[in-house]
Design a protein around this nucleic acid. Structure first.
Length: 295
DNA sequence: CGTATTTGACCAGCGC
DNA sequence: GCGCTGGTCAAATACG
């Protein structure tokens, strides 16, 4: 739906002004005038014409690359939509028996009981914890699995989802050589939402985030300033954030309409992240400028 | 100096 | 009952 918007964002936000032969054909560029004034010989004129020809050629190539990029973005968005749909279907199918997030179903009951007892016994006497913390606050139907596309070279297990998370543990699990990171919501003291983030064993470019519980507060306002390390998201500021695919597997009774809406959200968020990402833009400009010899 | 992250140790559930 | 495993704690460390 918003692919057109995304394409427009991508091409507009790149700031690529290499070439532009159509605009320069009518009015000669300043560089040409200067050259003509300084060097009137025919040899120089031939050089100028050669440069103009080169400029036109570069402009054509730039336009071709822009088209390619546009097609690529469109295909990527389409593909991601399909993948997320398939993953949602797979997760719905395996939700209660086999889980792709590293055997969390087996430990769900354990975790539920443990988090209650431990939180009550050892840690803080915060009221919401002790009062309602029991009776399946983190029920299995509240677990959300979020596959996140990430840079395999980026070792940080940070999923930038808008909330503030505090990392409290990391563990290497049996079925996955990549460590699993444990986060707790640090935005509201009373919020007991936790999440586990682990790279997929099959595809290390995919981060699998499993959410336990619901936030009892509104998402914090976006603040991406140089305010130092405040939370887990700070790490995502240090390194350019990876494209985030937010797939929510909320409840089993989630309708297909909701799934479609989720997919659209996926595309929108991914596109927005890509076009906003300065790292992506810089890399793209670098790649394009490497291919286009700018005089 | 305050806060977040790291990491080894510990605890409890589960399977055999 | 024992060992394995996942989840959590908390001291040490890093960072702004």
């Amino acid at each position: 739906m918003d692919e057109q918007w995304m394409i427009g964002q991508t091409s507009l936000s790149l700031g690529l002004h290499v070439g532009g032969p159509t605009a320069r054909r009518g009015a000669p560029p300043v560089t040409k005038v200067l050259v003509a004034e300084d060097f009137m010989s025919s040899k120089k004129n031939r050089e100028v014409e050669a440069l103009e020809a080169e400029l036109r050629r570069v402009g054509e190539e730039n336009r071709r690359l822009s088209d390619m990029l546009r097609a690529l973005v469109a295909k990527y968005a389409d593909l991601q939509g399909k993948v997320s749909g398939m993953m949602a279907a797979a997760n719905n199918h395996h939700q209660s028996s086999t889980t792709s997030e590293g055997g969390s179903s087996a430990s769900a009951t354990r975790k539920r009981a443990r988090s209650d007892s431990l939180d009550k016994a050892s840690r803080n006497p915060s009221p919401p914890l002790t009062a309602a913390g029991s009776s399946g606050r983190f029920g299995p139907d509240q677990a959300e699995c979020t596959p996140v596309h990430a840079d395999p070279s980026d070792l940080s297990l940070v999923v930038k989802d808008g909330y503030q998370w505090r990392k409290y543990g990391q563990k290497v699990t049996k079925d996955n050589p990549c460590p699993r990171a444990y986060f707790r919501c640090s935005f509201a003291p009373s919020c007991q939402v936790k999440k586990k983030v682990q790279r997929s064993a099959e595809d290390k470019a995919v981060l699998v985030a499993t959410y336990d519980g619901d936030h009892n507060h509104a998402p914090p306002p976006k603040q991406q300033g140089p305010s130092g390390r405040k939370s887990g998201d700070a790490a995502a500021v240090r390194a350019p954030p990876a494209p985030v695919l937010v797939q929510q597997q909320r409840k089993q009774e989630a309708s297909t309409a909701e799934q479609v809406a989720d997919r659209k959200n996926l595309v929108e968020q991914m596109a927005a992240t890509l076009t906003r990402d300065p790292g992506f833009k810089a890399a793209l400009i670098s790649t394009l400028s490497g291919r286009i010899p700018v005089a």
